[in-house]
Amino acid sequence: MSRAEPLTTPEHSSGLPWIADAKRVAPRDARALSKLFLDRIQVLDEGTRAYQYARNTLIEMNISLVHFAASRFRNRGSGAMEDIVQVGTIGLIKAIDRFDLSRGVGFSSFAVPYIVGEIKRSFRDTSWAVHVPRRMQEMRVDLARAKENLCLTLGRDPTVGELAEHLGVAEDVVSEGIIAANGYTAGSLDVYPSTGDEVPNARTRAANMGGTDPRIEIIDNLLALAPLLCELDPRERRIIDMRFGQDMTQAQIGDVLGVSQMHISRLLAQVLSRLRRGMLTES
C-alpha cells in the first residue's frame, strides 16, 4: 500500500489520509480506505478541494473493479480494452456518487453492477451499424436462438410462421425483427456476395453465427437488480423475499404482516413498478 499521512494543507483539511498514488493501494487496503473516504465524502461540500480529493482518490483506489468487470468483455471484438475501461470508469463514478453507507452493502458489490451496466450500454449503443429500437435488438437475439433450435429439430431453416409460433409472437413482429437484424453490421457496397461456388462446402455467414447464452443475460439482470433492491426499505424487501424467495401467496404474506391480501397486492404492484422503472433506466 502507498504511504498514507494525515492531510494538513488548508485545501485538503478534511481529516482524510493523504495518498500520493491511490492506484497502487492494495485491494484489501482499498476496501478499508474506501469506507473511510465514502463516509467523509457524504459530509464534505461538493466543489471544494477536499471533496475533489476524496472523490478522485476513491476512483483511483477502485479502478481495479473496472478492470475486473471489463475483462469479461475482452473478446467482444468491439473497441480496445482501454476504451472499455474508460466507459466502465463512468459506471464507477456513478456508483461513488450514489453509494450510501447506511444501506449496509459493500461498495464493491454495489459498484460492479453499475460498471457492467455502463459497459453493456456502450456496446448496445455503438455495436449496431444502424440504430434500431432496443426491442428489435433483443428480437434479433431471440430470433437467432430460435432459428438455431428449430434447425436442429426440423433439419432445415424454419419459416417465419414457425419462428413466430416458437417465440409466441405475431408473424409481422418476426418479419420486422429479421429486417432490423440486418442493421447490426454494414457490408461494403464494393464486396460482392459469394455464391459459394468457388469454395467447396461453403457455409453461409448466418450458419457461422452463434447465439447469446441466456444465462449470461439472467446474471446481468440480477446484477442490475441488486442495487435497486438495496434501495427498498426493510418491509418492502421482506415482502419481495416472501413472495419470490419463499414462494408465499399474497394471502400468506398478509397473515404474516397482519394486513389484508388486497393491501399486499397494492404494495407488491408499487414495489415491482418502481423496480421495473429502475431497470429500464439503468438498461
Results as ranks from 00 to 15, higher is better:
E5Y: 12
S13N: 02
P17A: 05
P17Q: 01
W18S: 00
W18M: 01
R24M: 07
R24E: 00
R31M: 11
D39C: 01
R40V: 11
R40C: 15
E46F: 05
G47K: 12
R49K: 12
Y51P: 02
Q52R: 07
Y53V: 13
N56D: 10
N56Y: 01
T57A: 14
M61A: 03
V66I: 11
V66N: 02
R74I: 14
N75P: 03
R76S: 15
S78E: 10
A80K: 09
M81D: 05
V87L: 06
V87R: 06
T89M: 15
T89W: 03
G91V: 07
K94V: 07
D97W: 04
V105W: 06
F107R: 15
P113W: 05
I119T: 01
T126H: 10
R135G: 03
R135S: 05
C151Y: 12
C151D: 08
L154S: 15
G161Q: 11
A164I: 14
G168F: 08
A170S: 13
A170H: 15
D172W: 01
V173N: 04
V173W: 03
V174R: 09
S175P: 01
S175W: 01
A180M: 13
A180I: 07
A181H: 04
A181N: 07
N182E: 12
Y184G: 07
T185E: 08
V191Q: 14
Y192F: 14
Y192M: 13
S194W: 04
S194M: 11
G196R: 11
T204Y: 02
A206E: 04
G211A: 03
G211H: 06
R215P: 03
D220T: 11
L222C: 04
L223P: 05
L223I: 02
P227I: 00
P234C: 01
I239P: 08
M248W: 04
M248Y: 11
Q252E: 14
D255Y: 06
V259G: 12
L267A: 14
Q270E: 14
V271C: 09
S273R: 10
R274L: 02
R276A: 15
G278V: 08
L280C: 10
